[in-house]
């Protein structure tokens, strides 16, 4: 499996060099909380993690809150309101290191389905009092608003990647995330190809590895939640999905759910 070298330069303050644990904050924007739960799911490693960081702000886990600034901020969710756009700018100012976790934060999430559509129309249908709703016309990734030091993809993120990322930040070693396809992980774990052997539509060949091919291991096609791999040939896969019997609408929906627009962007940027 191939990896992209992505280790942010961290100039820890002197108190951390002396052995004081870095402070950690976990923030939520437009999202389902699933990625924060992935952190709480690290049951076997939570105690080791609690020894290495001082959890200063994590409302999902504790009501105890310490005011900033913070050494490390994990950010879940996308920006969907003017208030959130301002909030992320403040968090950026308060954070030495800002790391986005999950498809909402890195690609706008499912809620980016609104982008380019009639959002006022949606709110008038969904809410009894749409006049109380203050929202942007778009759902956008955090990196569209502030500089981001590291991104973990996925819906939800992979627990192993989260731990490796935290270990790399805390111990200052290079973090290497795969940029290759999910197929590499299917083959490495001996999962039979759901597309070739079962005719199941799958986005694995154009999706970035990192989940250890979770869905195909349960006989389901990959739905692309880790977003485009390093050189996604969306056109060629689209043709094969058609051969497997999907019509244009079904292919569009498959490509535009958990990473809405990310694969379309990949096509525009030229896949090869």
């Amino acid at each position: 499996m191939q990896h992209e070298l992505s280790s942010p330069t961290i100039d820890w303050p002197a108190r951390i060099e002396r052995g004081e644990p870095p402070s950690l904050a976990v923030w939520k924007f437009a999202s389902c909380d699933g990625c924060q739960l992935s952190l709480l799911d690290c049951e076997d490693e939570l105690l080791a993690l609690a020894d290495r960081v001082s959890i200063s702000y994590f409302p999902e886990a504790t009501t105890a809150m310490v005011a900033g600034p913070y050494d490390v901020s994990l950010v879940e969710g996308s920006i969907t309101s003017e208030h959130d756009a301002e909030r992320i700018r403040q968090i950026r100012r308060d954070s030495a290191l800002l790391i986005t976790i999950g498809a909402c934060a890195t690609a706008g999430g499912i809620q980016a389905l609104r982008n380019g559509r009639d959002v006022d129309g949606f709110t008038s249908i969904v809410y009894a009092h749409p006049e109380y709703i203050s929202t942007l016309a778009t759902s956008t990734p955090i990196a569209d608003h502030v500089p981001v030091d590291l991104e973990l993809r996925g819906c939800p993120i992979d627990r192993g990647q989260l731990l490796q990322m935290l270990a790399s930040v805390l111990n200052r070693h290079a973090l290497r995330l795969p940029t290759t396809s999910v197929c590499i992980e299917c083959k490495a774990r001996s999962t039979s190809c759901v597309m070739v052997a079962h005719g199941t539509p799958c986005l694995g060949p154009i999706t970035q590895a990192g989940c250890n091919a979770l869905c195909p291991s349960f006989h389901r096609g990959c739905y692309g939640c880790f977003g485009p791999m390093e050189s996604p040939n969306v056109g060629a896969l689209r043709a094969q999905l058609g051969t497997l019997g999907l019509d244009g609408d079904a292919i569009f929906r498959l490509l535009n759910t958990f990473n809405t627009g990310a694969f379309a962007t990949a096509v525009e940027e030229g896949s090869t």
């Binding site: 290759t180 694995g204 040939n233 060629a236 896969l237």
Partner: peptide, 9 residues
């Protein structure tokens, strides 16, 4: 290359 997914299968 137009057809290849570069997936590594």
């Amino acid at each position: 290359a137009e057809r290849c997914l570069a997936c590594g299968n």
